[in-house]
């Protein structure tokens, strides 16, 4: 939980979450008053895992055909929503407000 707490200190953080290989939500924190809940974060985790899997297939195929390596293994996925952005790296993620969020800082924090 300490790790999720530190993610919540990122600028514009709405929620921080941790999930399994299958996308099941393990733990989470949500900023007070945010329109987000455990069920939606579990769904979001599944969306992120599905897209990391899809991108891994694409990276494999791309590198095999073009010889341009450096995409595989996929480390992170970012979902850009209307007003918020979810950044996922490994088994953890953070939801940020688009107007305040710093995606590179999020990746750095998630990698740490």
């Amino acid at each position: 939980m300490q790790e999720l707490s530190s993610l919540m200190t990122l600028s514009g953080a709405i929620a921080a979450f941790q999930f399994t290989d299958q996308g099941e939500l393990v733990s989470h924190q949500i900023a007070p008053g945010a329109e987000m809940d455990e069920i939606a974060l579990d769904m979001l985790s599944h969306v992120c895992v599905a897209n990391i899997s899809l991108a891994s297939m694409q990276a494999r195929g791309w590198e095999g055909l073009t010889g341009m390596n450096g995409f595989y293994p996929i480390e992170g996925f970012t979902l850009i929503g209307m007003d918020w952005t979810a950044v996922v790296n490994g088994h953890r993620g953070v939801v940020l407000r688009n107007d305040k969020g710093d995606i590179e800082a999020a990746y750095a924090a998630l990698a740490g």
Binding site: L54, M57, Q58, R60, G61, W62, G64, L65
Partner: peptide, 10 residues
């Protein structure tokens, strides 16, 4: 979309 990519890659 996935089938198109599978064909493209393989």
């Amino acid at each position: 979309g996935n089938a198109d990519q599978f064909s493209m890659f393989t």
